[in-house]
Design a protein around this nucleic acid. Structure first.
Length: 536
DNA sequence: CGGGTCACCCTTAAGGGTGACCCGGTGCCTTAAT
């Protein structure tokens, strides 16, 4: 069936076979996975979609297929300019119109690209910041886009709050552009992150597609050391035993450099990558790792997204990331070729204390107060880096409202003082939740049972309890608790913590994710004896 | 939260101890100066 017959605003029913035909004939995908097909068909039929697909590539197939079928241009929000170039190349190879909008273009190039983006079949890639430009938004709105896709959508939660706050405004931007269908795509999102994506993008009754999180061919191990010296010693010993290409992840520039120096002294070919290096040094580090002339790269989180190397054999962390979401994402860069790979974590107990710095979320209270005062006295508040996060916070609290122009006004439902107090409470709530996420990372590190089952249950996937491919499973089997008073996934209420969802059992411990307080561990015997929880 | 740095303290006057202070990760974009 030719694609043209699929078109039209009334295309509510979209035939799976037609989507598969497009995938094979136009894009060269021999087989679509069931999740990809379901997500693409739903978006093509006009439904919002959240797709969390950890394994295999092909998330791009979802917006590519839906975009081809839907009327009007497709807008794809993509975090890094370096990624956009690859995404465009894929579509152009398929003979489709794909363009980018970014600051690397001269004003003339930008204007030309913007004009071209109005074509009904165009795929337009840009970072969220581009949409904050009113002129750009106006042109795109006139082009009547048919699909708004957000790639790497977990960044809404990961970056929006304190780093690139334009990520928090994507829902409002999609409103302003009047795009009928929204698609959020990511490889990694635990249940609370999924919720935040849906809320921030204002997805309406989305089709939610969750893939299989298990990557059974990646072995898991963690080891505690007492000092930094011991850690570096252990690093050299471990790496000497590991074959093939690997990434050493560190939390800071200094820690990455120390890892590089240790491995170099041990005779390894190792390069260094972090955002403190010149762009030339970064390019060289990247290419020596990709072409294999350096076996190892020691890096911070700057090294990651869009790394196209299928045969990374191992990932070794010398510092714990601030959450299991981040950890899972980073170890997922190993074994893309589905051959055996391994993930190793080296940590000192006090590393988790230092990591608190990376999780405290910061909408500055001072900025909130300043912006609230300006709004309340009807002053114009420019949308800058400093004000955006504060405006989003005030809008979240109901103290401010966005208008159609994408600017904010004072709602009058709260006083400035009340809004500032509410914002302060919200910051404390967020920080409590972030700390509990870090606490789950620590629990993973110190876990004595099956690490895979711990990791999988964190992502809401039922666990076998024993994987046989993690360090702990070689010694002991999992102990099933005699009593499980609530099912995993069940909603419960506690007088102390409010409502939450049961996450997992581990021996006689029960982990609940409370909506307002994050992850909490409870002892099953106490829960039973004192009726600490009841069904919600 | 924890580490590194630095001023300042003591004193078998050269070097070690102490406490205050600061810093730590991701990348868009714009604009000004070469």
């Amino acid at each position: 069936m030719p694609p043209d017959e699929l078109r039209g605003p009334g295309a509510v029913a979209v035939d799976d076979a037609a989507v598969e035909w497009l995938a094979r004939d136009r894009l060269g995908f021999e087989h679509l996975r069931p999740g990809q097909l379901r997500a693409a068909a739903a978006a093509a039929a006009g439904r919002d979609v959240l797709a969390v697909l950890p394994t295999g590539g092909g998330k791009s197939a979802i917006y590519e297929l839906a975009g081809m079928i839907r009327d009007g241009p497709t807008l794809v929000v993509s975090p890094l300019i370096a990624l956009q170039d690859d995404q465009v190349a894929h579509l152009r190879r398929a003979g489709l119109t794909a363009i980018v909008l970014n600051s690397h273009q001269s004003p003339r190039e930008h204007a030309a690209a913007l004009a071209e983006s109005c074509g009904p079949d165009a795929f337009v890639f840009c970072a969220p910041e581009q949409l904050s430009n009113a002129e750009t938004r106006k042109v795109l709105q006139r082009a009547r886009p048919g699909l708004f896709a957000v790639d790497e959508a977990h960044l809404i939660s990961q970056w929006g709050h304190d780093f690139r706050s334009d990520y928090l405004r994507l829902g409002a931007q999609a409103d302003a552009l009047d795009v009928p269908v929204r698609v959020a795509l990511t490889a990694t999102a635990s249940p609370p992150v999924r919720q935040e994506i849906c809320r921030r993008l204002e997805l309406r009754d989305p089709e939610v597609v969750i893939g299989d999180f298990d990557r059974a061919h990646i072995s898991l191990a963690a080891r505690s050391v007492r000092t930094e010296d011991e850690k570096l010693h252990e690093l050299a010993l471990t790496v000497a035993r590991l074959a093939g290409a690997g990434i050493v992840y560190a939390a800071t520039h200094a820690s990455a450099e120390a890892a590089r120096a240790t491995l170099a002294a041990a005779g390894e070919s190792v390069t260094l990558y972090h955002a403190g290096l010149s762009s030339r040094a970064r390019r060289e580090a990247m290419s020596t790792f990709l072409d294999g002339s350096a076996r190892i790269v020691a890096a911070t989180v700057a090294f990651g997204m869009g790394i196209d190397k299928a045969d990374v054999r191992w990932i070794l962390h010398v510092d714990p990331p601030p959450s299991l979401d981040a950890y899972y994402q980073e170890i997922g860069r190993a074994g893309r070729d589905d051959e055996a790979a391994s993930a190793h974590l080296l940590y000192r107990p006090e590393d988790f204390g230092a990591a608190v710095h990376f999780v405290s979320r910061g909408v500055s209270q001072r900025a909130v107060e300043r912006v609230a005062t300006m709004l309340a006295s009807a002053d114009h508040v420019p949308l800058t880096r400093a004000t955006t996060a504060a405006l989003v916070r005030l809008a979240d609290l109901g103290a401010a409202v966005w208008d159609a122009e994408g600017t904010a006004g004072w709602s009058g439902t709260l006083t400035v003082k009340a809004a500032v107090a509410a914002s302060d409470a919200e910051t404390r709530r967020e920080n409590e939740i972030e700390r509990s996420r870090l606490e789950m990372m620590r629990r993973y590190a110190e876990h004595t049972g099956c690490r895979r089952s711990f990791l999988l249950s964190y992502f809401g996937q039922s666990q076998p309890g024993y994987c046989g491919n993690c360090d702990n499973d070689t010694a002991v089997g999992a102990v099933t608790p005699a009593v499980e008073p609530f099912a995993v996934g069940e909603r419960v209420v506690s007088d102390h913590w409010g409502e939450g969802t049961v996450q997992r059992y581990d021996g006689d411990q029960l982990t609940v994710l409370f909506d307002d307080h994050g992850y909490r561990d409870l002892l099953v015997p106490l829960v039973v004896e004192r009726s600490l929880l009841r069904p919600a």
